[in-house]
Write a protein that binds this DNA or RNA. Structure first.
Lengths: 277, 277
DNA sequence: CGAATCTTTGAACTGAGTCAATTAAAGTGG
DNA sequence: CCACTTTAATTGACTCAGTTCAAAGATTCG
């Protein structure tokens, strides 16, 4: 890590204002700022603004480019033949959009801006061509792809939670962690998506999202004010996702009440390689 | 497509017997047989046999290589701190394992053989080095990555189904389709995974898998004999996944009973690029 | 300011989770 | 190869979390 995420985020806003962006900026936003160089400084990439509610890419459209979110946020969706819209991901600053089209002829999901947003366009052909000269760009692509695969795996874990309370808790913590890694507050969250979007993402009814958020607020774990959510008791939320079933189990365990030391995601960190077999 | 999938699958078995494998074989198994050449014929890759129940890769292990399943099958899992095992995917012939480690330091998920199996090891460093000479190998990697991202997105769609009956129906159809694309029967399915594994994959209780399979069998949609499942009425299964809620809605709609022309996955095909905005 | 969308809340029903117990299958060792 | 152990699968009973339907507030947007 070179500069603090906060600083790069601020720098981003200036870059966005001028609607110009270099490959170095891209590396910065992707957490690879240390790999930036004069060579990458010289590569200017087009930015594209997307107004709130507008499509950045449509499902089925021919795949030509990846997009890196520079500002704002998107929801990535797949629509089935009945018109039901499945939200696959929320993309914020630093996230790539369109990776499911890699090596395919067309995009497998669409992306809608949840607010006025901006993206850097990375035409795949250009990226590959440059990648042969600058290995760091090749690495960037691989990192992005691996991260996306891993993240969708996390989403499967998210949706596998048997209780919707746990799903929401996991979602909030996941969201908070990503905000934090961008240098923003991990406590005060501004959700740009609707409850319906969250519901689709988590695979529950939208009324349930409302009810669960209200319940968590009543219990003092979070504070909800419209689309602003504050995480008041993160350890309690972390604890909560460990339960298989919601309230009853929680109440039962309330006596014990000892907080374990887990990271915000509640997943074990994978740093130490484990022994084989 | 060059050779029929069936033929390549048979050829595969011979290659496996000799425990040697070329890059051309890899391209064949990945559906890129047309791109094979004398150059790829010359690249010999190591195969590895994995006995049933053994780990191919462990979560957290340093990432060094991708694996392509040459025979048998695997389950890809993530284990959380409580010891709960989340199945993220089932990998069969032609599937890549380990893509979530791309560009990362360590694997984010593990893989266990569900039966005696064999994989081709593709050390990433080697793959990248060769990719600079042979663009087709670069394309192979991208295709694999994009496919994996898309597939995990499909899994999210799978798990988002509100009724467990729909989830199971979708799962069976998904599985059948993949078997078909390998040239096997899309009717008679040999499931190498346990009901528990399916349950974890779909995010439901394992008893529910039993019950739903029994119910589907009672209705004559499938025939279950231990781990062998035969899809007797695929159109009915396709129809079923369109319902939001299971039995009651199905019974209600039984009068109408008109089958639409959908592909086995029940998702709309994305071939025709759509208009912008 | 009105229309549309989003959000919250209520009530009723039911699907599926949990617990528990039985049966079937697969693996182990003598 | 058979007795034995262990694991997987099925089935039942019960309960409740969450979906569905409906309707009233709140926000946003034109």
């Amino acid at each position: 890590m070179s500069a603090s995420p906060l600083l790069t985020a601020v720098a981003d806003h200036r870059a966005r204002a001028s609607a110009r962006c270099t490959a170095s900026d891209v590396l910065n936003w992707s957490g690879m700022g240390a790999e930036a160089s004069v060579a990458t400084d010289g590569i200017v990439l087009p930015m594209r603004h997307v107004a709130s509610g507008r499509w950045l890419v449509r499902e089925g459209q021919p795949f030509e480019a990846l997009y890196l979110v520079g500002g704002g946020s998107f929801k990535c969706v797949q629509t089935d033949e009945d018109g039901y819209e499945q939200v696959l991901a929320f993309a914020i600053h630093g996230d790539f959009i369109g990776l499911d089209g890699l090596g395919q002829l067309c995009n497998r999901s669409g992306a809608v801006a949840l607010e006025d947003s901006a993206v850097v366009t990375l035409p795949l052909a250009l990226l590959l061509a440059m990648g042969h000269e600058l290995p760091v760009l090749e690495t960037l692509l691989h990192r992005a792809a691996g991260t996306e695969v891993a993240r969708r795996g996390d989403n499967q874990y998210l949706m596998a939670a048997p209780s919707s309370e746990v799903r929401v808790a996991r979602f909030l913590l996941q969201f908070a962690q990503r905000q934090e890694s961008l240098g923003h507050s991990g406590r005060r969250l501004r959700m740009s998506m609707t409850r319906r979007d969250i519901a689709s993402y988590l695979g529950v009814a939208h009324e349930t999202i409302s009810r669960v958020l209200m319940a968590l607020a009543r219990d003092g774990f979070i504070a909800v004010s419209n689309r602003d959510i504050e995480l008041l008791d993160k350890p309690a939320l972390v604890e909560m996702q460990r339960l298989t079933r919601g309230r009853q189990a929680r109440d039962r365990r309330a006596d014990i009440a000892q907080h374990t030391t887990l990271d915000a995601s509640g997943r074990a960190n994978c740093r130490q390689p484990q022994a084989l077999q």
